[in-house]
């Protein structure tokens, strides 16, 4: 039983990180109907930003919560800026183009960023343990301080995001734009600016995800975004791409599935879980758990 609970916490923890990344995919898809392939590299760049900033400030193992918070904020900010830049330079000129072309541009940006990071910083760098990790015994279950932090920070961010989307003017504008860019324009909403904001928001969340990811897996590498990115995307599709609550639910489910398969079946098949889930979903319910049915207009 304790093993089960431990796996549960691990799964939710993993899912939380996937959720932070998945939200970026789902919000951009909801707005532009684009699968932002470069999002996984934004995540990766967030990790690098965290690493470089910590290095520049001379923070190493045990630097404390304050340092950690600063690093997280820098990661989020850098990602926001990167995300907005990518949108402005690579995607906005493609607005009138076909979906395939936009997809290819996104793929191009993704490959470019991966190789840029490789050129600039190399591989296999280690992120310092800014906050000392401890384990707590709660009801006989071994709970890592890491998991608590991941779940706690994610929860706070989720609450903040929900408030932003549901209760603020900009959130309303985002929702309007995701329904119809044209009609939103007729309302006087500055559509381009709103889309930029959407990218910034999604990217910042990915940055937070990157920081939390590093807490548990402190390797910084140009390729590190590929797998988590792809899995987060699967999570978004599972939940219904375009749906914010869907992305969160899908991510938690995926995190749990992956952890349980890894724990009870075999860890070598861990990565395949996401793809099997993807295939099953796309074959039986492509609109996902919360998605709207996609109808093709003639």
């Amino acid at each position: 039983m304790t093993l089960f609970l431990q796996q549960l916490i691990n799964g939710l923890s993993l899912g939380a990180i996937y959720a932070l990344i998945a939200l970026g995919y789902t919000m951009v898809y909801g707005t532009l109907q684009l699968i932002n392939f470069a999002h996984s590299e934004v995540f990766m760049m967030g990790a690098f930003a965290a690493f470089l900033f910590a290095g520049a400030m001379g923070w190493g193992d045990g630097a404390g919560v304050g340092a950690a918070a600063a690093v997280a904020l820098v990661a989020m900010g850098s990602c926001a800026i990167l995300g907005m830049t990518i949108e402005r330079i690579a995607y906005r000129p493609m607005r009138k183009s076909t979906r395939l072309n936009m997809l290819i541009t996104a793929i191009g940006v993704s490959i470019f960023l991966q190789n840029l990071a490789l050129r600039l910083w190399g591989t296999n760098l280690t992120f310092p343990d800014l906050i000392a990790k401890t384990n707590w015994e709660i009801a006989g279950v071994n709970v890592a301080s890491n998991s608590v932090m991941v779940l706690g920070v994610t929860l706070v961010l989720m609450i903040g995001l929900t408030w932003l989307i549901e209760k603020t003017k900009i959130g309303l504008a985002m929702r309007a734009v995701s329904h119809s860019r044209e009609t939103a324009a007729l309302m006087g909403i500055p559509v381009d600016r709103t889309i930029s904001f959407t990218f910034a928001l999604g990217s910042a969340l990915a940055g937070a995800g990157a920081f939390l990811f590093l807490l548990g897996a402190p390797k910084v590498d140009p390729q590190m975004g590929a797998m988590p990115g792809l899995k987060a995307f699967v999570a978004a599709v599972l939940g219904g791409i375009g749906s914010v609550p869907g992305a969160v639910v899908g991510a938690l489910v995926l995190g749990l599935c992956e952890t349980f398969v890894s724990g009870y079946v075999s860890s070598t098949w861990r990565d395949a879980v996401a793809f099997c889930v993807l295939i099953v979903i796309l074959l039986y319910k492509p609109s996902g758990l919360f998605g709207k049915h996609i109808v093709e207009k003639v």
């Binding site: 929702r175 309007a176 329904h179 044209e182 009609t183």
Partner: peptide, 8 residues
């Protein structure tokens, strides 16, 4: 075609 925002 009206174009109300259906989900809102």
């Amino acid at each position: 075609g009206r174009q109300v925002f259906p989900g809102l």
